[in-house]
Simulated scan of single mutants.
Amino acid sequence: MKSYDWGVQVANRHDAKNTEEFIYRAAVELMAARGYHGTTLRDVARAVGLQMSSIYYYFPSKQELLLAIMRRTMRDLRAFVEPPISAEGSFRARLTAGIRAHVLFHADRRLETLVTDSEIRALEGENRDEIIALRDAYSGLFLEVLEAGRRAGDFTFSDAHVATNALMTMCAGVAVWYQPEGRLSLPQIAEEFTRLYIRGVAASPAQPE
């Protein structure tokens, strides 16, 4: 995966084809560092060297900019995780593959996932409803595998929704503390997450596949 933990590329910021992308990147970095309410469109405009009128051409409001970040992040997250978690194989193998992909995405796209996970409270009205629906549909991929695995006797837990929410919360946290120069590689971290979770829900002490 390509890393999106960007710095704004000032030298190319006035390339018209890339203007919207530079605005997006700057907003991601600023909102990840300062929060939605601590970031203004003027801050974003200053970061990419544009006038406010140019920002409004691409994003009519800060709310629309936040929504664009969350839409893209949720779309790309699902596109990355759905193939492995939906592939042929045992429920343990599918869940393991889904957890790995989820962790890898959250670490590699850490600033976008930080904004998406932490600023949903800043969305208004229908915008919030839309992103919550996307989030619920995404977590439903894991819920389906967990429920089916429990029926098959592969997993054991009391409530599938609690098990799913615990998984989402645990794995999303990697975006907060992961550093590429850290002691463990990202694949090693993803592997450890799968071991911890699969051992917790497994009906027997077998290793994750």
Rank of each mutant, 00 (worst) to 15 (best):
A87F: 05
A87G: 10
E88T: 10
E88M: 05
G89K: 06
G89S: 07
G89E: 08
S90G: 14
S90C: 08
R92D: 03
R92F: 02
R92K: 08
R94T: 07
L95V: 09
L95P: 03
A97R: 11
A97F: 03
I99N: 01
R100P: 01
H102I: 02
H102A: 00
V103G: 04
V103F: 04
H106N: 15
H106P: 06
A107N: 08
R109S: 00
R109L: 01
R110L: 07
L111K: 11
L111G: 00
E112S: 12
T113I: 02
L114H: 09
L114Y: 03
L114Q: 13
L114M: 12
V115M: 08
D117C: 03
S118M: 07
S118H: 09
S118E: 12
E119S: 00
R121T: 11
R121S: 14
A122K: 01
E124L: 09
G125N: 13
E126D: 15
E126H: 10
N127K: 11
R128I: 01
E130R: 12
I131E: 03
I132S: 02
I132N: 12
A133I: 00
L134N: 08
R135G: 14
Y138L: 06
Y138M: 09
Y138H: 14
G140W: 10
G140E: 10
F142C: 09
F142P: 05
F142M: 12
F142G: 06
E144C: 04
V145P: 03
V145W: 01
V145N: 04
L146T: 07
E147V: 15
A148Q: 15
A148I: 04
A148G: 01
G149E: 07
R150M: 13
R151H: 12
A152C: 01
A152G: 05
A152K: 10
A152M: 07
F155E: 03
S158R: 14
D159P: 11
D159H: 14
A160G: 15
T164M: 13
T164P: 05
T164G: 02
L167W: 09
T169E: 10
M170Q: 04
M170V: 05
C171K: 00
A172Y: 04
G173W: 05
V174K: 01
A175D: 01
Q179P: 00
Q179A: 13
P180I: 08
P180Q: 04
P180V: 09
